[in-house]
Design a protein around this nucleic acid. Structure first.
Lengths: 145, 145
DNA sequence: CTTGCTGCAAAAGGTTTGCAGTCAA
DNA sequence: TTGACTGCAAACCTTTTGCAGCAAG
């Protein structure tokens, strides 16, 4: 991703936060910059480790609070895969996608399948519901060549 | 479900447990009977409440241990919907199915769609994986008539 | 008898929260 | 100046575990 794009996203988040809450702090800036720069699925622990390098005074509590704030303003999603800790994923300017998890390595692969999306819509309708959202995780084992 | 079916299932579980572990206890009997009689998605808390009525000495720890045991022998699955506590579902003699959750009431509807199942297989293969398992949850709002 | 199971209470994770001081606006 | 935010530590919640006694086989 280009520097410009990152700056633009940071600006957007900053504005959103200030609109909803009130304060934009140094801690939030550091955490959000990390979030924008490192796309993927990270636990709070991951963030805390990375962010501590830059500013060792930032507490776990602030990481939690900031990440939850990002979820509230809609630029991040919290996902719980199985039993472990929740992971946070940056979704600003990202299209919807689902996940396939490698049962051996734990690696997460993202994908979209338009046909499945369409069918999900249909299934929900048949059951008498408006589809609002969905979560789909495939668990697989890498095919050896 | 008929009484016979319930008795048969209880017998099956009893045999399985004794084969894998060693002891079949009064507590396990009470918990498993409840599990067989009340199909659906229940938290440990739910079970603990229901089972306590019958035998108030049964502890939360035993409920957890028994439910985990049932998962181990393959007659139950543990599911985590969102943030709350895990729920356990009885799956002995049940076909695979997915879930639709009513975002307003929290009600859970079960369904299967063979086309989606097929496509999931396909998608996994395209990504280079053997599909091992999957989890799909649709979130919807009831359509008013 | 043997050894797995139970209840209890304590511990273990992950996450949230109360508080007094700090800092953005 | 004001009150939202922060770090800290304590609290919370769900789930697991160590232990001494109990009980199934």
């Amino acid at each position: 991703m280009s520097e410009d794009r990152a700056a633009e996203q940071l600006q957007y988040i900053k504005t959103e936060v200030k609109r909803c809450q009130v304060r934009w702090t140094a801690q939030r800036q550091v955490i959000v910059e990390h979030f924008i720069a490192n796309k993927g699925h990270y636990t709070v622990e991951d963030f805390f480790g990375a962010v501590s390098v830059q500013d060792s005074s930032i507490s776990m509590a602030t990481v939690y609070r900031t990440l939850n704030l990002l979820v509230d303003i809609g630029v991040a999603v919290k996902r719980v895969f199985g039993d472990g800790p929740a992971t946070f994923e940056f979704i600003l300017n990202r299209d919807h996608h689902d996940h396939l998890i490698d049962v051996d390595s734990g690696e997460i692969v993202e994908f979209v399948d338009e046909d499945i999306e369409r069918l999900q819509q249909l299934v929900a309708e048949e059951l008498g519901y408006d589809l609002h959202d969905h979560r789909m995780i495939l668990y697989g084992r890498k095919i050896k060549k």
